[in-house]
């Protein structure tokens, strides 16, 4: 089994794909910060920010709605914010009752709730776009350049490399569990919850030991190739003038959106 589902990069020949990864990281972060700063109900600014996203989608040649189609991942979390609908004082705009409770939705509450969702939805889209147009190893390089400590970027690089290997192992273990716990027809397979938890824990323990031993072998492979405790990396990227201009341009646009949102 191969986990291409874990690959978020979409190979395309586009201007955005070719940008230095640092540019994309910085613009993404600025965009998300700007979203967080937009006041509730800044509809025009929300729309402009969304247009910015559509433009970025277009320029990446992924299709206008690429990130839109994948942007519902954060939606379940909206439940957490649902109470603001009822809790902020304001004019009632609707009400419903569940069992003996009566819920009154206020206009101010609705405004805040929708604003939270829009901010989240805009931010998740640009994050989706970032990994669709930048290969993950290049993102790691970008963070190296942006002064994230090397020990962290190294751990992340290992994590990315072995994510695929170890999840393969997990799915082999899960399949082995399934084929052994097939059970007889009509009878619920497996024992009680405790027993099932123990089986899962054993799998985790087994995976841990295998990973631990693998790290030994990897360490040996690194030693064999001259590793002495200090890691060196080569930077494959160089900022070109275009990269600077694009960053400046994007930041300026986001700034204008922010101004409009605060008018």
């Amino acid at each position: 089994m191969h986990f291409d589902a874990f690959d978020r990069y979409h190979e395309k020949e586009s201007f955005v794909h070719r940008l230095d990864p640092r540019v994309k990281v910085v613009v993404t972060i600025v965009f998300i910060i700007s979203n967080a700063l937009l006041p509730d109900g800044a509809w025009l600014a929300f729309v402009l920010a969304w247009l910015f996203l559509l433009m970025a989608n277009l320029l990446s040649r992924l299709g206008v709605a690429y990130t839109f189609k994948r942007s519902l991942v954060a939606l379940p979390f909206a439940l957490i914010a649902i109470t603001v609908l009822f809790s902020i004082p304001g004019k009632p705009v609707g009400s419903f009752s569940i069992a003996m409770w009566n819920f009154v939705i206020t206009d101010a509450g609705l405004l805040r709730f929708v604003s939270i969702l829009i901010r989240s939805w805009l931010s998740v889209q640009i994050a989706l776009l970032l990994v669709a147009v930048t290969r993950f190893p290049d993102l790691i390089h970008a963070f190296e350049h942006l002064r994230v400590p090397a020990i962290l970027t190294t751990i992340v690089a290992f994590l990315y490399r072995y994510l695929f290997v170890l999840t393969d192992e997990v799915f082999r273990l899960l399949r082995a569990r399934e084929s052994r716990s097939a059970g007889t027809a009509g009878k619920r397979p497996g024992g009680g919850v405790l027993w099932r938890a123990r089986v899962a824990g054993n799998m985790a323990g087994q995976l841990f030991l295998r990973s631990y031993e693998r790290s030994d072998r990897i360490y040996n492979a690194m030693l064999s190739r001259g590793y002495t405790g200090h890691l060196y990396t080569l930077n494959p990227h160089e900022m070109k003038s275009r990269d600077y201009y694009v960053t400046a341009f994007a930041i300026a646009i986001i700034f204008i959106v922010q101004m409009i949102g605060r008018l």
């Binding site: 020990i151 190294t154 290992f158 072995y162 990973s211 631990y212 790290s215 990897i218 360490y219």
Partner: peptide, 8 residues
């Protein structure tokens, strides 16, 4: 490498 693999 140990921390890297442990993260994975």
């Amino acid at each position: 490498p140990l921390m890297g693999i442990m993260a994975a």
